[in-house]
Computed example of a mutant assay.
Amino acid sequence: MARLVFYHHPQADQFSLTYSSASMAEIRSQRAQSDESTKCIGYPFETPVYVLYEGDGEIESAQDIDFDQEWLSDRMGGLSRAGEVVTFRLVELLEAAVDVREEEAVRLYKEFEPQKIQQALDHVSWGAPLPTVAGEVMSNLILRHSLPNANHRTGIAMLQFCIESVDPEFQMPRTHVDDDTWREWVDSYIVDSKRLITVRRNNLRFKQLEELDVDLVERKDGIQIRLAEFELDMHWREALSEYAGQHESHCRDFAQAVLERAERDDLLDRQGPTKQEFVTFLENGLVERDFRELF
């Protein structure tokens, strides 16, 4: 039977795996040194494994935040005009996703970090073929994880806007069955995306688990990561670069699948937007758009 541990604590999913050991004394030592809230699980394998989880004991509900202009302005200082426009639209998308699911049902797992949106824009191959640009916009926004929730849903919406900036008549195929469930053709892309970004941030932690003969790590939503399928033995900086590249390639493939499913093969070889063209579309081409229709 496969030896499986949870990446998120099963009773408190704001706590994530930080350290593992065959020694409970070592876990206690790590716990004593931590400045974060912690929880611990002992996995009763034939050779036991102990896992330390760290996280924020307080998780906000979306209803606790007023997404008003003052709240947003306080967080956008120092952004370029492009960064401001993309940030503003992302917050509108987050509000729409929250509205569709009802505020009390949406939890905010981290701080809003708009500076990371600026970083995401700087890593896109603007003006390359459209599937490349759209896929990289989606990938880099997801990789930077700037929003407190809904990064995949808003990333796909931004991919759609990128395509629409080249052809405003583009009809995006539906990506959701309902507000909680991805359509079957999208789901595999989302699951693999979440696997890649989890391994990217945790290669050394997962290497530690692998050395303890753990086979599987399971994150939220039942997504399992089979450790033997990933290269873990590298410096964490190398892992950040390696898995970012794999994630970008994965999202470029998704952008191509979107165009093919929409029967728009004519756009596969079209030049994607420049950064300015994309920002201009976000600023002027989405006026009065009801973003709830995207979710």
Rank of each mutant, 00 (worst) to 15 (best):
S165I: 01
P131Q: 12
T154A: 10
V177A: 12
L93Y: 09
T181V: 15
D99T: 08
N151R: 05
G78Q: 06
I117E: 03
E113I: 02
R101G: 09
E95D: 14
S80T: 08
A157P: 00
E136W: 09
V133H: 09
T154I: 10
V133Y: 04
S165V: 03
K110N: 14
K194P: 01
L108C: 00
S188L: 06
V86T: 11
A120K: 03
L93H: 15
A128I: 04
R107F: 07
G135I: 02
R89P: 00
I142S: 04
T175G: 06
R183F: 06
T198N: 15
Q171E: 15
A97E: 15
D122Q: 13
V85A: 05
L141G: 11
R144T: 11
A128P: 06
T87C: 15
H176E: 07
S188Y: 14
T181Y: 14
V106N: 10
I190V: 12
K116A: 07
V191R: 13
P148S: 06
A82P: 14
Q171S: 15
Q118Y: 00
L94N: 04
A96W: 03
S80V: 02
F170Y: 14
N140C: 01
K194D: 13
R89K: 10
I117S: 00
R183D: 13
L196V: 05
T181S: 15
I117L: 05
I197G: 02
H123S: 03
Q171L: 11
I190L: 06
G78K: 02
L108S: 00
H145K: 04
V106A: 10
F170T: 04
M138K: 08
L90V: 02
V191Q: 15
R183S: 14
V191P: 08
P114S: 11
V91F: 00
V106W: 00
L141K: 08
L147E: 10
E104I: 08
D179W: 07
L93T: 10
A150R: 07
S125P: 05
A120P: 13
P114G: 12
A128Y: 09
A97V: 07
W126Y: 05
E103N: 12
V133R: 03
T181D: 14
G127S: 13
S165E: 06
E92T: 06
R153F: 02
G127I: 04
T154K: 05
K110I: 05
H176I: 08
M138R: 09
L79C: 06
L141A: 13
Q118S: 12
L147Y: 12
A157I: 03
S80G: 01
P129T: 04
A128N: 10
V186M: 11
E113T: 01
I142P: 03
P168M: 07
H123D: 08
V86A: 03
V124K: 08
A105T: 13
E102F: 03
L196D: 05
G135E: 07
V100C: 04
V124Q: 13
D192W: 13
A157D: 07
R144N: 12
I142Q: 06
A134R: 02
E92R: 12
R107S: 07
E164R: 12
D192L: 14
Y109I: 06
I197N: 00
V133Q: 08
L121I: 12
D192Q: 13
Q115G: 14
V166N: 09
L196H: 10
T181G: 04
N140T: 01
E184C: 01
D167R: 09
L143R: 02
P131F: 14
D99E: 14
L93K: 01
R144W: 05
